[in-house]
Design a protein around this nucleic acid. Structure first.
Lengths: 227, 227, 227, 227
DNA sequence: GATGAATGAGGATTCATTCAT
DNA sequence: CATGAATGAATCCTCATTCAT
């Protein structure tokens, strides 16, 4: 005896919840509208009445999850702070959100990118947003460090992409480990640990990069890199 | 004008070529055996005769592309060299191969991971292989730098994952640009550029990390990071 | 002019009807779900929605036809009567039912037995049921005739099998003639005629068998048989 | 290393042997030419070269098995003997042959009858042959017993069909038991036992039938039957 | 004579989607 | 609002059959 007469807005969220889970579990193509309706606890025609089609449903899911992730990161950051503090906060927000919403993250990071333009574009936009934010932070840091023009624009873009990719990889690693580890949070990289790893890995290097330090293939191994 | 009466080994490779392209373009589920057969220039039954099923075909594709990628990286590295030189060479091999085989890379990096255990495991294994290689290099570098026990094992694993993720992200970025950019190679990050970015981004930071430098949230931004 | 919006229970029977006809006409393998759906006047997906698979459909058909045949025979028999009366009534019920449902009989007698364990077992069970009933009747008759232990158990089982086989053969013969004969019922063995033939053929011999009469190869032909 | 250069006639028999086994095991439709060729130890095109098509192959199998069965029965019978001796011998030949060639019997009795006219006709013809032989024997017996015109032609036909059906049923029963019984021949009806059962069951009754004895529904059970 | 290479045709099954009630 | 009933359009897979060598 399912609860009847639920307001539309609520029903829609239930459907989106069911869809996120199902798309994450099965993938876009393998997820059937039948299963989604069943998981949502409603009849299939109702799903169509509210969400129109599988494609629109997937789209709605992606938009909602994107918004939620961006909101989580944005909420974590204090706009006025120093660049490294902002990155630190943003990363913690990112890792915390993806850890709490693994299905949502899976849909964004894995499913949406592998099933055609309409969806991939949405995620690409989100990623561009984040990359732009990181790029800005790097710029801020450069200004803070008093080094102007030292880093070419393209170089900065590359660094930002690398940084974002590193964070994504860590997020997946952390989430995957979570599923298997029998022990508590102390055992695996929590959001805080992951963020710390990122800061040590990326920011320290960036600082020296801004100081003009470069690794060059010509040098004798690590020696050349630090010279 | 399809060449007829081709020996089996050759036909199989043609089929795998067609499958890589099609799986990369459409995704595993959306790719139809009909389309793959057509792209391969053979009839569908022949595909089944040689590769048995869609699942086995996908599996064969993944195995082939995995082997090719690992071979490319391995061939690029000179085992005896210093850690940073090995990483540098390996990264160049990696970026060069993924740039030359974008479809193969897409299948490994995007499709295989999103379509169920049997396939994801294969890629996870490959990734673990690479992460292990990177982990070893970091260990070597630590020894070269005379810092022993400075980095916890878990920390190294995190760094390796971050590094690999950064490289993957850069590879995708580079390849995506390639598709759209009308101009030549000079315009976008080539394998060499990408590898340089990675070395500057990751290795420089690692070097200082081994020197005991850490970023801490308590400190005043970048200043605290370097102290 | 297909009647639309029919309740599920009704549609299922229509499908089973169509399936019986089609399986009888073509055989299990040669019957296509397409044809069955067409004969049933519905689309193929509906058949799958209700009956799940060709195998389950065939199974459902067999179970329904088995139940109908057993019910027909059971209904014809008066439990309290003498053994020969019960056999006589049961045979008439059997011949009447198989004559009225030739397709159902064909599916049970020919198709189900030739297409793998799951189906053959169902029919074997039914046959065992009937053989057991006949065996019981023979036992009853022996008791009525005052001959106890005269017939070995294995001998009775053999006789029961022979009797059932004879009835099946006659049923097929009668039905086959029906299809071709242009004239009315009087011309070919109706249920009553067939049952009479069976009683004369089988029961008369059984009676004398119980009286100790045996045919032996040693004797001089028919003479020896009656001695 | 298959033996090469085998004369055509031999190869054909090997193929027919393989076909009998495979058709018996799988059924006509489910048996694939691939499997038959493999069982026969030859390549598929050779099967087509010799037997032309699956249909013709099946036909050839049926014809060969029919001929073998008829030959076995014929060989067992001594034309000049008394009717009951001839039937006794024929039945022993029949049961012996079907027990020794279960696959052939399965193809004739089960497969051929369930897969369309062209094949069913062949078996129907064979059955008619046998029924005619039995009919003749019954006629002979009637003459031997001095009763002429006592049995209507249609009645005799029915009796013959019943008798043949009983024998077929016993044959199947005996063969099926053979597969399961772990003990020796003594345990289950051998050809001889089956034939004895048949003679007792059928011939004894027939003898009295010729003597004018009839079972009638009106009478009080077995008593009325014999009166 | 014998076979590896190849395919046209067809069959089971699933799914997104829509009405009529 | 809400749903049981129904389907068009693919998709995976198999098989009998034929060449070219």
């Amino acid at each position: 005896m399912k609860s009847k007469r639920v307001p539309r807005a609520v029903r829609e969220q239930q459907m989106l919840d069911a869809a996120v889970l199902t798309f994450a579990r099965r993938g876009y193509r393998a997820a059937s509208m039948d299963e989604i309706a069943e998981v949502a606890g409603v009849s299939k025609p109702l799903v169509y009445l509210y969400l129109n089609s599988k494609e629109e449903l997937f789209s709605a899911v992606i938009r909602r999850e994107r918004a939620a992730l961006v909101a989580a990161v944005t909420a974590a950051v204090q706009p006025g702070e120093a660049a490294d503090r902002q990155l630190w906060s943003g990363l913690r927000g990112f890792f915390a959100h993806t850890a709490e919403h693994p299905a949502g993250w899976a849909v964004l990071h894995q499913q949406a990118r592998t099933h055609g333009e309409p969806f991939a574009v949405e995620v690409a936009d989100m990623r561009a947003e984040i990359v732009a934010f990181v790029t800005e932070l790097i710029g801020m840091a450069a200004k803070e460090a008093g080094c102007v023009g030292e880093l070419a624009e393209r170089e900065v873009a590359g660094l930002a992409h690398a940084l974002v990719g590193a964070a994504e990889s860590l997020a997946e690693w952390a989430n995957t480990r979570t599923d298997e580890g029998p022990s508590g949070d102390q055992e695996h990289p929590t959001a805080k640990d992951a963020a710390a790893t990122m800061m040590n890995f990326a920011w320290t290097g960036l600082g020296h990069l801004m100081g003009g330090e470069r690794w060059t293939p010509g040098g004798a191994g690590g020696e050349g890199g630090r010279g």
